[in-house]
């Protein structure tokens, strides 16, 4: 292992990791918002919007992120819509993640039985109150673990950003391999960087999930 090489190029990885995480976080937050809206549309069976959401979810779930990104980055400019690499990364991740988040929210909402809703209603609770006091607290215990899994899945998906010339971790690693042939060092730093990003989140989530499961009983 060539330590001077690692020392020399570590700052590049840090920079790339910051970029990956920034775009990842923004994309994931947007995905959560999109997912929540889509889940509510499906849950309350809002006409027309419901069909649109269904089509979106299928398109998003049944195509690879890299193809979505290529279309955004190389295709759309030909239709007059010019997006930066960063914008493509964010939009692509939000487009992909929104459908996964929607399904997680929805499975939580649907896990609350009909009798629960009816008995809350027959106690005179209003729609909003039923949501707030009865549905959300129960839905959370189903949704949160699934949402957490989505976050990790989406963070991993950010690795394809380099395909649209974002100077992310993969991009830096590939560059260094191409330029200096220090493959071992470049890959080691790549793995380390992803571990630093994903491992803590994954540990926090699994602790959280265990605690929630205990509280649920």
């Amino acid at each position: 292992m060539d330590w001077s090489f690692i020392q020399k190029f570590a700052p590049m990885y840090v920079e790339a990791a910051v970029l990956t995480v920034t775009i990842g976080v923004i994309g994931i937050l947007l995905a959560v918002v999109i997912g929540l809206v889509c889940a509510l549309v499906k849950y309350y069976r809002i006409p027309v919007a419901r069909q649109i959401v269904a089509v979106y979810i299928e398109l998003s779930r049944n195509t690879p992120l890299i193809v979505q990104l290529f279309f955004l980055y190389f295709g759309l400019p030909k239709a007059g819509i010019l997006l930066s690499s960063e914008a493509c990364g964010i939009i692509g991740l939000a487009f992909l993640g929104g459908s996964y988040m929607a399904e997680s929210f929805l499975s939580g909402l649907r896990s609350v039985g009909k009798v629960q809703l009816e008995s809350a209603e027959s106690l005179g609770l209003r729609r909003g109150q039923v949501m707030r006091y009865i549905v959300i607290p129960q839905a959370a215990s189903v949704s949160v673990p699934a949402l957490a899994a989505n976050v990790i899945f989406l963070l991993k998906e950010t690795s394809v950003f380099s395909a649209v010339s974002l100077a992310d971790l993969m991009y830096v690693a590939k560059d260094l391999i191409g330029m200096y042939y220090n493959t071992g060092e470049a890959l080691t730093m790549l793995v380390a960087a992803y571990l630093v990003i994903i491992l803590p989140i994954s540990i926090v989530f699994s602790v959280l999930e265990r605690r929630m499961r205990r509280a649920g009983n």
Partner: peptide, 19 residues
């Protein structure tokens, strides 16, 4: 909403809020 407050209903399945 107002009328339902005056009607109490108990169902067959245990419908208590589990949380």
């Amino acid at each position: 909403y107002n009328i339902r407050q005056k009607i109490g209903m108990v169902f067959q399945s245990y419908d208590l809020f589990p949380h």
